[in-house]
Every structure is written in C-alpha cells, then in structure tokens.
Design a protein around this nucleic acid. Sequence first.
DNA 1: GACGTACAGTGTACGACGTACGGTGTACTA
DNA 2: TAGTACACCGTACGTCGTACACTGTACGTC
Lengths: 224, 224
Amino acid sequence: MSAREQEQVASGAVLSKQRVVVEAVRLADREGVDGLSMRRLAGALGAGAMSLYHYVASKEELLDAMVDLVFEEIELAPEGTDWQSAMRRRAISARQVLARHPWAIGLMESRTSAGPANLRHHEAVTACLRKAGFPVLMATHANWLLDSYVYGFALHAASVPFDTTDEFADMAENVFLPQLPPDEFPYLNESAAALIAAGYDPAEEFIFGLDLVLAALEPLRVSA
Amino acid sequence: MSAREQEQVASGAVLSKQRVVVEAVRLADREGVDGLSMRRLAGALGAGAMSLYHYVASKEELLDAMVDLVFEEIELAPEGTDWQSAMRRRAISARQVLARHPWAIGLMESRTSAGPANLRHHEAVTACLRKAGFPVLMATHANWLLDSYVYGFALHAASVPFDTTDEFADMAENVFLPQLPPDEFPYLNESAAALIAAGYDPAEEFIFGLDLVLAALEPLRVSA
DNA sequence: GACGTACAGTGTACGACGTACGGTGTACTA
DNA sequence: TAGTACACCGTACGTCGTACACTGTACGTC
C-alpha cells in the first residue's frame, strides 16, 4: 500500500485500489472474467462505475493488478530446506492458487509487464536454485522448465471440465466416450477406461510430473 | 468440410464456415483477439455482420473453431520412428504453431470442449506412447506432462515481450534492469546479465526442457 | 410463362460494454 | 468566509454481440 493509499484510508475514503482489486478478483472467481465489468464491479462495491478510475487508470491496469494479487497468494520458495522440497512446495502452492483463480491463467498471455509480486516470486525461485548449486544459465533453464510445467498444467486443468474423480468419471462416461468412436479413437478409449477405473486427482497428476522434472534437474547442479 | 458446406461452395455461395474461420484466425494474428469483432471480421470478408451467423452459431463457437483450426496446423506424431523423435517433432511443431498464434493459448483456458483436430492429435500422441511400451496409466501421465510443458512454455513465451536474442538484450538493458534494484533483486540481475551475454533463443530454450523431460520419461516404459 | 418455397445475406435495434468529460459535494486551509 | 483540493458520479459516445424481421435470388412445380 502506497503512502497515498494510506492517506486515503486514514481520511475515511470508502474506496481504495486495494479494495477495488480484491473485489475484482472475488467477482472474477464467482462469475469468470467475462462477467467482470467496471459497472458490475462498481456495483459490488456500492459505487458508481466512474469512481473506479480514481484508483485504476484503465481496465487493463486493473487486470494487471488482479494477476499480481493472485501471484501474491503463491507461497514463496522457503529458505533453509533442500532445493527440491522448496521448489516442490512453491509449485504445489502455485497450482492450487491457479486452480482457485483459473481466469488468471488466460490473462497472463496478454499481460506483458510483470507485477511486483511476480518479480519477488521469480527472485526467490532463482535464489533457491543458485544457492542449490545450479550455474547461472542452468538456473534460468530450470526456471523456465518449472514455470512452464506449472502454468501449463494449470492451463490444461482449467480447460478441462472436471476437478474430482467423481466428476471425471461422470463426464467421461456420459460426455467424452459417446463422442469417441472406438474404431477411430482406440487409444483414447483405452485411456479413458483406465482412468475411470484408477480415478483422477489433479493434485496427484501434477505431482507425478513435478517430481519427474525435479529429479531430472538434480544432476545439473554442481555440488557446493 | 461437411456435405452442406460442399453444397454451398458448389452453388456459388460466397461465404462458408471454412472461409469465416480462416479469416478470423488471420485477423486475430494481425490484431490480437481483442481486435476481432464480428463486424470487423465481416468487413474483412466483404459481408454484413449478421451474415456470419449463418455459418457460426455464436462468437463462442467461432472461437472454438479457431482454436481447433490452430490445432490442425500442428504436425501429428509421425509413425515409424522411435517415440522420442516422434514426440520431439510434434512438440516442436506445437510450439512453433502456438508462437504464430499466441492468442490461441489464452483462449484454451475458457474452451472446455475439445474439437476434432484436438482429439485426433491426442489420439496420435497416446498411440505413439502406448506403442513405445508405456503402460496405459503411465502413457496418460506422460501425456499430461508433455502437454503441460508445451502449452506452459507457449504461454510463458507469449507473456514475454521479446522473441529474439536482440529484442531480449534490448528490452533487458533498457526496460527490465532499470526496474530491478540490484540490492532487492540480486539474482534476477545476475540472470539477466548472464542471459544478455549468452543470448536468448526461445526454440533452444524450449528444446532444453523438452529433452530433459523426454529423457526422464524413457525409463518408465516397459520394453517390448 | 406464373407461382411457391427455400435459403444466403442484411438492416435495424437493443442492451451492455469501456471510458472521456464535465460536473458535484465535502473537508480542509488560509 | 473564501478558496482549493479531491473523492465521487451522471451523462454521453462509440463499439460490442446478437435477436428479429426483412430482402433478394434460385429453383422447383404446374
């Protein structure tokens, strides 16, 4: 919170950038990003639409701020543990946060400037990798790989209309399989059947790939 | 192309779903997805806005079709080579295609039903993995991991405002570094400096992680 | 020829959107 | 008491997606 915002709060202002952005995230969670309009957001805050423009220069800036607020929810890589545990924790936290705010993923593609929380996050991850003994360029490679996996998984998971084992089994039997003629898609049929039997849990699915990636990175650091 | 569309073309109809969707992709490539409106698209086709609704039930359906058209551009996993080469080729192709149509990535999050090209693609990948000796569930895990990496990389790359070594060096020196006080972000400064010196190429960066992932998956198949 | 039907394509209109602009009102300073 | 600053808002403009009712033309069938 900037000095200016503190002033506003102290002087009894009803609105603040903080409040605007927080409510915007809430609205997007509830109704999706398409349901977020300046008028509706203002309504939720008990204000007129144009009042928002005292705290946010444009809707684009609001979206930037929303994405950064989401980044703030992600746990920073903890210090004082081995690098794999630290990366594991922050990756799992990131996945959970993005699952809570799926609209944020689609927004990232169009947002080209990183917010402060994003930068802090990136710095913490890089620090962790460097301290673990990854050479500079190897650390950036590892960073790209891990981030790509985390965001990609979240994107993939958001584009799929189920979140739990039961939902998946239901959708698979009643929606997917009927669309998949067995002679044209034999392997997808086989996969779906196996997944229905075994159950699907996004958290487990995520960890499978995550641990594989972490293990693959291990030999690339030079021990201290 | 459906029987109905062939009829239309044969009978001299000026528009067709094909033509509408192709032009929509072109427009989105040129102006971004925000610049794509039904009126502008119709204009580009020399038609009135409402005419489009004879070929597309709604803008949502148009966006679905656009995403599927992009999937059609991705090379299918070739048969008759070892699984790693096959996966490598299709992943590299996917990355290139998504770099050409960055708007498609952001769209995927909100599209919950896969189009035919998407399904064909998925089937081909699964077939390749199964034939390479991955057990059913392992193949779906590998699928998730690979897809997450590919889409995640594309998403990450789209959210970054440079594409070539020169652009990166320019942006880093003139935009990023000035925003990164060295005492607050020592590691990001170090990384940026190293990357400026070493050069940045998205294709290489992508292949680094891809090969690591492929190698990590190798031991999980049971040899035939 | 005349007439009916089907359907590709369109003009107009409605409600919602982002936001420019020019107000209000209240709280504080001088 | 007058002046100033600024949080807040009402109105209006251009654009959006699209419902609805309409045009014109092509092609039967007599």
